[in-house]
């Protein structure tokens, strides 16, 4: 044994540098031992890393590296494809915060300038992330590192888009989405759910023929102007004979029908609910089932 004892911190950095410089991580890195018709490929799912590597990343990258190193030593022509994601909303928010700190906004500097700033931040953060990955000793083909918005991938995204568009698979239309008044549409993964104790509001809805009213219980009175039906459960004995009757909505004087749908919880509130297809996920489905009108009562800033 040499005189110096094993020092992980220095040895790990030294070895890593040598491995990478010798292109061992690349597809041809193990050329000498590659066997015919043995190929192995694994993608680094483009990590959306906006800060420090956490233990979940450490696990996933460790497992990917173990299988890659095993296959590489086992004579496979091996590709572990690295890359990073542009992380739309997360990145945009970081840059917007930077601008705010400088006392300006994206609207003030304009789209072009904003994108320049975002690219600069991307360069910085991707560098931090990949240097952290290197500390874990992982061996992806760094020379092939991609970015979901690099030139080649911009082309491929357009190619895919135009193809799907021309097939009629991409269309514009009204659709219920998670909406943020600042960021616009959000994906389900970007939404955090919180339970609130709501209040019940009881509203009397008069029948159009003047024969009385039904009492609706709702936690969302603000969407009243988007109501396009009133709904009861088909098995609810209390309301069996009013199904099909018309309601004349107070203020707007609009007439809507009383419909029956098993979606209604008879135990909840009065057992009579209002249906606002444009502003409630469940009502959206009901609206589609019963072919109801969709009336949007808020704009994109929630006014």
């Amino acid at each position: 044994m040499s005189q110096k004892s094993y020092e992980p911190s220095t040895t790990e950095d030294t070895f890593y540098k040598i491995w990478e410089e010798r292109d061992y991580f690349e597809v041809e890195g193990n050329k000498e031992i590659q066997e015919d018709a043995k190929n192995f490929s694994i993608m680094m799912p483009p990590p959306n890393v906006t800060g420090r590597l956490h233990i979940g990343h450490a696990l996933t990258f460790t497992l990917q590296d173990i299988i890659t190193r095993y296959k590489r030593m086992d004579g496979y022509k091996t590709l572990w494809q690295p890359g990073t994601d542009h992380a739309g909303i997360a990145t945009q928010n970081v840059v917007e915060k930077q601008l705010l700190a400088e006392g300006t906004t994206k609207e003030e500097i304009g789209r072009e300038e904003f994108l320049k700033r975002a690219w600069a931040w991307k360069e910085e953060s991707a560098g931090i992330m990949t240097s952290q990955l290197r500390k874990m000793g992982v061996s992806p083909a760094w020379k092939r590192e991609r970015f979901t918005m690099d030139e080649g991938l911009q082309k491929s995204v357009k190619e895919a888009f135009v193809h799907l568009y021309n097939q009629g698979l991409i269309v514009r239309g009204n659709y219920m989405v998670n909406w943020c008044t600042h960021d616009g549409a959000l994906s389900d993964i970007e939404v955090e759910h919180e339970d609130h104790d709501g209040k019940f509001y009881h509203i009397k809805y008069p029948f159009a023929d003047g024969s009385g009213f039904v009492e609706v219980a709702t936690t969302r009175p603000e969407t009243y102007f988007g109501d396009t039906a009133v709904m009861v459960h088909p098995d609810d004995a209390r309301y069996k004979d009013i199904i099909g009757k018309k309601i004349r909505l107070p203020l707007t004087e609009r007439e809507v029908a009383i419909i029956a749908d098993e979606h209604v919880d008879m135990e909840f509130g009065t057992g009579v609910v209002k249906v606002t297809p444009a502003h409630d996920k469940n009502d959206y489905e009901v609206g589609k089932r019963h072919d109801l009108e969709f009336i949007t009562v808020f704009d994109e800033k929630a006014f």
Partner: peptide, 24 residues
């Protein structure tokens, strides 16, 4: 712009050159 997952969804083959033209 497109949802971030649009470009990630292509990743398994876009990184192999699909639709990249001859860029790099």
């Amino acid at each position: 712009v497109l949802d971030t997952w649009f470009s990630s969804a292509l990743w398994p083959f876009s990184t192999l050159g699909w639709g990249n033209g001859d860029v790099e």
